[in-house]
Every structure is written in C-alpha cells, then in structure tokens.
C-alpha cells in the first residue's frame, strides 16, 4: 500500500529509525569492516596472495623465453612433450596455447620458484588441480607469481577459460618431487 506511494511524511529523512534496523545496521557494518580488513590482514599474515608483478609482452617474446628454459633444463619427454626440471629458486615458464600447457614442469617440494605465465593465442585459464589454484592467462601479458609447492605428487593443469572446440583436451602436468 505504501511502498509504491510517496512517503507519508514530507520530511521523511528526519523520521526516527526503529531499533531493529539500527541494531542490524550496526552489526552488518561491523561485519563489513571485518571482511574488508581480512584482505590486507591476509596480505601480511597469510601465505596465499597473488603478486601483482606483470609485464606487457608478445607471444614471440614469451615463447622464446620458454624455449630457452626448455633447452637448458629438459630432462626427458613424455607423450612428445618436454619435461623440464629447473633448479630451485629459478624463474620457470609455462605457456598456454590451443590446446596445451607447455612444457611439463618438474619441481621440488618446499622450494620456491618464480612462475611466469602467458598465452600464445586466446585467453586461457590456469587451473592447478587438485590443489585448486586458478589464474586467468591473457595473451600479451606475462604474469609472475612465486609458488612454493608444499605437497609432493602429480598435478594436473586444466584450462578453465573456454578456448574453442578443443578446450577440454587442454590438460598439462606439473610434478612435485620430495
């Protein structure tokens, strides 16, 4: 009857607000502030934060860097794909293209690496499973994150950004050794 009629009072701004609403607004605002502070808190005390290091690049330039790493640290091949084992603490590269993640990386547990990611063509989604880390991979942009694998095992890298008809065949691998 009245939500679709003009307010009963000419100066409705000055009508006192009821207690239910005041209490609720106070609680909700407090919760909003806590949630807001959680993000900077995690940057200081949490271990899962995304660096903002990124560069403008080109597929050719990024491809050359990846090739350089593969030439230097290739240890074997698997299903026609090179497996590279770069030294702990080094810069490692992974490229996404239609429809593969290239190359296969072999890392050591509890060591940190600077992982560089970019796409050669369309957008891709770096989805590391089963640990469940998801990043957007955008052509023309090189993203650098420091990763510290903390569990040994075999990880799948799934593409979770739609990239055409072969999207579902885009699966890569990362090995983490003890």
């Amino acid at each position: 009857m009245t939500s679709y009629m003009p307010p009963a009072d000419r100066v409705w701004w000055k009508v006192p607000v009821g207690r239910v609403e005041l209490v609720w607004i106070a609680l909700a605002l407090l919760w909003c502030i806590i949630m807001f502070l959680m993000m900077p808190y995690w940057h200081v005390y949490g271990k899962q934060n995304l660096s903002t290091e990124a560069y403008q690049t080109t597929p050719a330039k990024f491809g050359a860097r990846v090739q350089e790493m593969v030439d230097q640290y290739k240890v074997r091949e698997e299903a026609g794909m090179p497996v590279v084992a770069p030294p702990a603490g080094s810069d490692i590269y992974l490229l996404g293209r239609l429809w593969q993640w290239w190359p296969i990386l072999e890392l050591e547990k509890d060591q940190s690496y600077r992982l560089h990611l970019s796409s050669m063509d369309w957008q891709h989604g770096f989805s590391l499973q089963p640990t469940n880390v998801n990043l957007q991979i955008v052509p023309g942009y090189e993203m650098v994150i420091q990763i510290t694998p903390d569990k040994a095992g075999e990880y799948g890298v799934i593409c979770n950004e739609y990239c055409g008809i072969g999207h579902h065949t885009m699966v890569g691998k990362i090995y983490v050794k003890e």
């Binding site: 299903a79 296969i104 499973q129 799948g156 950004e161 739609y162 579902h168 885009m170």
Partner: peptide
Amino acid sequence: LGVSRRHWDMDFTGAAMVF
C-alpha cells in the same frame, strides 16, 4: 572440487595428459 565451468568434458577425452 575444482570442476571447471564452460567445459564440455570432465573426462578430458582426447587430451595428451591424463587428469
């Protein structure tokens, strides 16, 4: 559990690598 959106095949049929 990490299941992807916009994805035709949870079995990744035809992929070179297995997951």
